[in-house]
Design a protein around this nucleic acid. Structure first.
Lengths: 317, 317
DNA sequence: GTGAAAGCGCTAACAG
DNA sequence: CTGTTAGCGCTTTCAC
């Protein structure tokens, strides 16, 4: 021992990996590392992993399911200890078949899997309370007196989008309003085009975007058209990505603890690897409404007939 | 072979790694994955690496040199094929000593190192033409008629900041103007506080920020104070991070090919590993001025005495 | 309890 | 040029 210490001996991780059939590496697969939402999750995950002596491999599919599948195949072959899926999966037969195949093989060699978004595969998961968050956001708008609230949701194939839509619809119908949902991909451009589309018809007095990234696009489009936010239209986002305090108007949104989610994913993986957690249970992380400057009561002229009722509701609370 | 094919045999990467003393993994160490600049580089690098069958480990030091050093130690021990340093290093004895020690040990086991920013260590590098970019940005402002142009630079310990400062100073003195530099860390908050500081004295008519991230902070502070951009003050950034088209006013900046830099870093690593490149040469990637909406000629009232000279210069060119 | 030995799956070196 | 073998450095098992 003295000699080992003296020579500053370090076990060779490759030999150890060969023997134990497991490398001290976790992988995290995201839709796009350059999206602040995923970047933040990655930050949390890498920090937690390194604290445990694990390295983190990042795989950015750039929203292409085939790329994602190729990555997962590589991960399988290199026998990483665990893989964390930060984004949702596809509800598409071919994708699901291949994915469950890989998952089986990962499980087979003793690796673990954790999801950070609701997925059709029944994997252990650490997710944000999307439904409640959407209810909070919509409720906030409703409470302000809005009734024509449109939602810009994500692709139908994404369960996260489903959940957020469900929360929105619940709140809307609960208040006697008609839900109105249009869909876009979860990018800035998705947000701008969706907003442009919304503006073509009878414009809503408030817009709820399923992600901050899209809300940024919405804000940009509104700014470009010279429409005042929140004067003419209120906007709410989701996620609370970093840097939001610095854009104008400061975006009202629902805070998702992204870095915490990443870290929790790693912790969960460790538990799974130690065999201390054999459940495929989903643990839900709390979200919080962050009211900032992009929301205000609707203009009186916007829906004259309904104003009195709305005011009454506000006064009562 | 037929049998191997039939059984869909795959070589075991761990056994191979043990034997070849090298894992098919490259590492990229960044100051902050959640900073769009680094996120974009990571995107480029992971894509290029996966195309070659390599996985990419991401290490985010969160701007803490100690964390970075710890990561590099882990990387050494796990014998990754190569490590890419995306950000600059510290010019500090302790840091440099440890870093060169790790570098030596990486070289010793046959790994390669590439830098994506100018560093005091003489490693092979793929860098953007920072000096020229800064000259371009400053020249653009000068050409518009500005003379009181302040620069918000990065920490003195960062060579990238040095180079951008040098380009700025060159352009300024070349035009007979006095350079005026203040420093901040390369974050949004750094930008806001630096701008606030600038506003306390005799405000410049234009501000050149050493990074878009800081420029975002500058814009935010100006917006908050109700100062019109570019009407009262022009702002130029550096990097051209994604999403800039969607903030208002659209930021004039210098485009750095970030994803390309990341990919080039990986390619270079591969060359180094194949022994086809033993040079520690720096290859410079071209940058491009992106003129958008955050720059305009200075207000006539801003510097009345100097106006004629400035106009003369413009007319002449 | 301590100590020796087998073998993880590959590659490189060497013999035929 | 093809076929065989030693050994990378660890962990686990088994004998003492």
């Amino acid at each position: 021992m003295a000699a080992a210490n003296h020579l500053s001996y370090r076990p060779n991780p490759m030999a150890r990996a060969l023997r134990t059939r497991r490398v001290p590496t976790v992988a995290i697969v995201v839709h796009d590392v350059a999206d602040p939402y995923f970047a933040e999750i990655v930050r949390g995950a890498t920090a937690a992993a390194s604290a445990r002596g694990y390295l983190t491999v990042v795989c950015s599919s750039d929203r292409d399911p085939m790329t994602e599948l190729r990555y997962v195949e590589m991960l399988c072959e290199s026998r990483v200890s665990g893989v964390i899926f930060a984004g949702g999966g596809l509800d598409e037969p071919h994708y699901r078949r291949r994915m469950t195949g890989y998952a089986r093989s990962i499980e087979h060699y003793g690796g673990a899997i954790v999801a950070l978004a609701p997925r059709s595969e029944s994997w252990p998961a650490e997710v944000a309370d999307n439904r409640h968050g959407a209810r909070l956001a919509t409720g906030h708008l409703l409470g302000l007196g809005h009734r024509r609230i449109a939602m810009i949701s994500g692709p139908t194939t994404l369960r996260t989008a489903h959940e957020r839509e469900a929360g929105y619809s619940e709140a809307m119908t609960g208040a006697g309003c008609d839900p109105f949902v249009i869909r876009a991909d979860l990018t800035i451009v998705g947000g701008t085009t969706a907003m442009a589309q919304l503006l073509h018809g009878e414009a809503p007095t408030a817009v709820f975007a399923a992600s901050d990234t899209m809300a940024l696009g919405v804000l940009s489009e509104l700014m470009r058209k010279g429409i005042d936010v929140p004067g003419a239209i209120s906007v709410v986002g989701f996620d609370d990505i970093p840097g939001l305090e610095f854009i104008h108007p400061r975006l009202t949104t629902v805070r998702v603890p992204m870095a915490e989610l990443g870290a929790a994913g790693v912790e969960r993986l460790m538990l799974l690897l130690d065999g201390e957690d054999r459940s495929s249970q989903t643990v839900v992380h709390q979200v919080e409404l962050m009211v900032r400057e992009s929301t205000a009561p609707p203009r009186v002229s916007a829906s004259p007939a309904r104003r009195p009722a709305a005011s009454a509701r506000i006064r009562r609370s």
